[in-house]
């Protein structure tokens, strides 16, 4: 079982990140995914968060307890959620927007310039797809095919191609980073005990 939290500020497509990933996993990767999101006053401004619980069997407890993966796209989200990330967990940060604490080796950090990549592709709104691509490469939690199948109903048709490009950009960048780490499995520590 894998618990994932996507976080950032409103407008970065945080909820959409979990929707796309959750749909991809549960409809096209043949696994179970339950997605929840921060809702109500706590979701306005400031730190916005969405949660995904992924499992080989039916998800029972729907919320994240000790996330194995944290995606933090803003400083406030990083400050708020980094402490709850499990030891050995995977931390994906937007490197141009998040100033990190000194690395103590508690978690595995994967920085990505998602917004900059998206701007190079023409619009910073695609940053969340760069992140999903990067996330897919690092965590292997979702396959690229599944994400591409999930996209059409979840992004505006005229931006579908650009979103796929953004995903590919993040995915290939993630693969480069992983290759540099010479294939070490980053997932083992990020997995939590599954429910049969």
């Amino acid at each position: 079982m894998m618990e994932v939290r996507f976080s950032g500020f409103g407008g970065q497509g945080i909820v959409r990140c979990a929707l796309i990933t959750g749909k991809a996993i549960s409809l096209y990767d043949n696994k179970f995914a339950t997605m929840t999101q921060s809702f109500g006053p706590e979701a306005r401004g400031g730190a916005c968060s969405s949660q995904l619980v992924v499992s080989e069997s039916r998800v029972l407890y729907p919320y994240v307890t000790v996330p194995g993966v944290l995606v933090a796209l803003s400083q406030e989200a990083y400050n708020l959620y980094e402490p709850e990330l499990g030891n050995g967990g995977i931390l994906i940060v937007e490197q141009d927007l998040v100033k990190q604490k000194p690395d103590t080796g508690r978690v595995q950090v994967f920085p990505v310039p998602a917004t900059r990549f998206a701007e190079e592709l023409g619009n910073r709104l695609f940053a969340n797809l760069v992140v999903i691509g990067f996330f897919a490469a690092v965590t292997k939690c979702v396959t690229p095919d599944a994400v591409k199948k999930a996209l059409p109903e979840l992004v505006p048709g005229r931006f579908l191609k650009a979103n796929i490009q953004a995903f590919d950009k993040g995915y290939s960048y993630g693969n480069e980073i992983m290759a540099a780490k010479s294939g070490a499995s980053v997932m083992a520590d990020a997995m939590s005990e599954g429910v049969e």
Binding site: A18, L19, G22, K23, S26, L27, F32, A33, T34, M35, T36, Q37, F39, V59, P62
Partner: peptide, 10 residues
């Protein structure tokens, strides 16, 4: 309830 209402699943 709110949890089931706002939870996304297949």
């Amino acid at each position: 309830d709110e949890t089931v209402g706002h939870m996304h699943e297949k």
